[in-house]
Design a protein around this nucleic acid. Structure first.
Length: 663
RNA sequence: GCGCCUGUAGCUCAGCUGGACUAGAGCGUCGGUCUCCGGAACCGAAGGUCGCAGGUUCGAACCCUGCCAGGCGUACCA
């Protein structure tokens, strides 16, 4: 799938490459177009004449003029001009592009051109919250990035499978189980009877376990013992762990459903173990010599993988370094680390393990169809085919870059070079708190910390903003705003407030580049003005109001873009650069999304929507549409509004935001 | 120590593979726009030696080197 604009650019490139070759005998691989500083100068610019000038020893402006003459005949091109001493500026056929775009929008393509087939299933793994406590704002960033990325890939025509991996047998779940069993002295039955928000309850338990471990050596030993019991299964501790993990997982799904995030499959770590995924991977790794057993030294009794690029470390002097370059895959107590299990999981994702899970639908209580892995086949149940992806994206914060590289090293060691290349660590920075925010939450900071620009969220300390709390606060604020403007029933007001709150939250999480640390601040996150989701929503609501009024005005008020008079529209577009710019920007949506698929910078979609909304608001201010006396001009204006609102709506949809009826 | 990332307006951030210019937004500040399709909006002003110093290039916020400052990682946590 490529876009209208990309298709046109390609056509232009082909024609020019041919022309340059014929005329000057120079062969380029490709031409790199840029964007002129102002729309009046055109939509595409090409500085190739500067380079040609050196090669054929002639003036760049002269060469540019020669190229311009023929290029003007390319279909879709309106005019070609020479500027800036040798730039070729291309001005596109405004009417043609506008009509094409309107038609494309009607067919729900929004500027895309159907073309190349999808290149196989893409698996996106995101969210992956340890199921041992409530989700916090850092998890929201992960889920919003992942979910929006999935929406973009689907828009581009990819088949996408969304997986939310549940680390239900890991250390973090074990810690909470220790807290419940040893600290709180609760049985499974008692835990199951606990009322209220269980994820919040566990948040506090988890925060206190660290202290519990510090108290005595015996307390500390509960961790390893519990972890082993969980891995072994068939014992009360394992059952409690199962209860905790799945109950928390449900809570996470409910939280994510609030912000329009859903999944296809919940692969569980316990199945990786019980279905012997890990054993199989372990055998493969051993057979290939990718990991080895350590007899001596600090890593004694562990199976490790060598990291770093010095396989032949020499003599005793290097012994220390060698140990530093060993990543433990199997601990000395026989349990497997996360990385080990992740290698097995990654192999399965590509269909390389020769094993598969069993599946059953998962009742998340949060709507949407989601499946979970199980250890046994369910009789008579037809299950979708999961896994066996062609390309895999793991949305994981940048602190895990090292672990991710080890997983890839594992794949490579097993000879799966191509799959390693198709494994992408979708890395992003964490959400931290401003010191002011941490203090607002009631945390005492050291003098050192209070001087920092941000402090890290720390689940172990219970320091963080819970996702549901943030959402509740946003909802409340949005509701206030709605109520000051409209007299609505509670239900209607709530529905609108929810859409606005989610729009604000998701936009906020996507505003920043991936590798920017978000220093969370309530004032900023709760803002509904300026560069925010509600700003974009408001622009669309305004546009929708125009059409609503039009319909209210009667049958003659109905509008369809095919009703525009082409001659009138042609002149209108030629005369008004500001309007043409609005449409051209709107047409760029698929180009932005294609770029996002490569750079993984979702913020670009947000920026696109915001800038387009800004331009629209200016247009809205400058042009009166409903009161326009000239009928054909009015239709032209309506066409502009229609195109822009539909592209804006689509870009919000890609960001997982909806549009309220009114606001 | 080593590895990765970051340093742009008072604050929070953009700036695509180096390119047309006066380096852009939002917030905040100050001043305007309500007989209008809703002001969650629009317009204007003030505010920057793009951390510092070299280098490459016709051209550098962007590429290279060094330095300074900060963050993260380098766990038998993930």
């Amino acid at each position: 799938m490529h876009s209208m604009i990309a298709a046109l650019t390609q056509l232009l490139e082909q024609a020019l490459l041919q022309q340059i070759h014929d005329r000057y005998g120079v062969s380029y691989e490709r031409l790199s177009f840029s964007v002129p500083p102002r729309i009046e100068l055109g939509e595409l610019a090409l500085p190739v004449a500067f380079d040609l000038a050196r090669k054929v020893k002639r003036a760049p402006a002269e060469i540019a003029r020669e190229l311009a003459q023929e290029a003007a005949r390319i279909p879709g091109v309106w005019k070609v001009e020479v500027a800036g001493g040798g730039y070729l500026n291309f001005r596109l056929d405004r009417l043609g592009l506008t009509l094409k775009l309107a038609d494309s929008i009607d067919r729900k393509l929004h500027g895309l051109v159907t073309g190349a087939a999808s290149s196989g299933k893409v698996i996106v793994e995101h969210t992956n919250i340890n199921p041992n406590k409530a989700a916090h704002i850092g998890h929201l960033r992960n889920a919003v990035l992942g979910d929006s990325f999935v929406r973009c890939l689907r828009f581009l025509g990819h088949e996408v499978e969304v997986q939310n991996y549940l680390d239900n047998t890991g250390v973090q779940v074990a810690d909470v189980v220790v807290g419940l069993e040893q600290m709180e002295r609760l049985t499974l039955r008692q835990v199951a009877a606990l009322e209220g928000k269980f994820d919040y309850y566990c948040w506090d338990v988890y925060a206190r376990v660290a202290d519990f471990y510090r108290q005595t050596e015996a307390n500390q030993q509960h961790r390893s013992r519990t972890l082993q019991a969980i891995e072994a299964g068939n014992n009360p501790t394992a059952e409690l762990a199962e209860h905790v993990a799945m109950r928390i997982a449900r809570a996470h799904l409910a939280t994510m459903a609030r912000i329009n995030v859903h999944y296809d499959l919940l692969p569980r770590e316990s199945e990786i173990l019980h279905l012997h995924f890990w054993e199989k991977a372990f055998e493969l790794l051993k057979a290939r010599g990718a990991i080895y057993f350590v007899e001596d030294g600090k890593n004694r009794g562990c199976w490790v993988m060598k990291t770093g690029e010095r396989p032949e470390c020499e003599e005793e002097a290097a012994r220390q370094e060698l140990e530093d370059d060993e990543k433990i895959i199997v601990r000395s107590d026989g349990t497997v680390t996360y990385v080990g299990k992740d290698i097995a999981y990654q192999l399965w994702k590509f269909g390389l393990l020769g094993l598969d899970f069993f599946y059953r639908p998962f009742d998340s209580g949060a709507g949407g169809e989601v499946w979970v892995t199980t250890t046994e086949r369910t009789q008579g149940l037809e299950t979708p085919h999961f896994g066996a992806g062609r390309r895999v994206y793991n949305v994981i914060d940048s602190r895990q870059a090292y672990l991710q590289s080890i997983v890839l090293q594992g794949l490579r060691a097993l000879g799966f070079e191509e799959e390693a290349c198709n494994s992408v660590h979708f890395s992003y920075e964490m959400v931290a708190l401003t010191p002011a925010c941490a203090m607002e939450l009631g945390f005492e900071l050291s003098e050192e910390d209070s001087k920092r620009t941000f402090v890290l969220v720390a689940g172990r300390k219970g320091l963080g903003v819970k996702a549901d709390d943030l959402l509740d606060t946003l909802l409340e604020k949005a509701l206030q705003e709605v109520k000051t403007r409209h007299d609505l029933s509670g239900e209607d007001a709530n529905a609108i407030a929810r859409v606005i709150a989610v729009g604000a939250l998701r936009y906020f999480m996507l505003r920043f580049a991936r590798n920017t640390v978000i220093a969370f601040d309530f004032k900023e996150a709760l803002n509904f003005e300026g560069e925010t989701g509600p700003y974009v929503q408001y622009a669309i609501v305004r546009a929708n109001n125009i059409f609503r009024k039009l319909e209210e005005a009667g049958e003659n008020g109905r509008f369809h873009w095919r009703d525009v008079e082409q001659q009138s529209l042609r002149a209108f577009l030629a005369e008004n650069d500001d309007i043409w710019e609005l449409i051209y920007q709107a047409a760029r949506l698929p180009d932005v999304v294609r770029q996002v698929a490569q750079t993984l910078e979702l913020s670009q979609v947000g920026k696109f929507a915001f800038h387009l909304a800004q331009k629209f608001n200016l247009f809205y201010h400058n042009y009166h549409i409903l009161s326009e006396a000239d009928a054909s001009r009015k239709k032209n204006l309506l066409l502009v509004v229609d195109i822009v609102r539909r592209q804006l709506e689509k870009s919000l949809e890609l960001l997982g935001c909806e549009v309220p009826q009114k606001m």
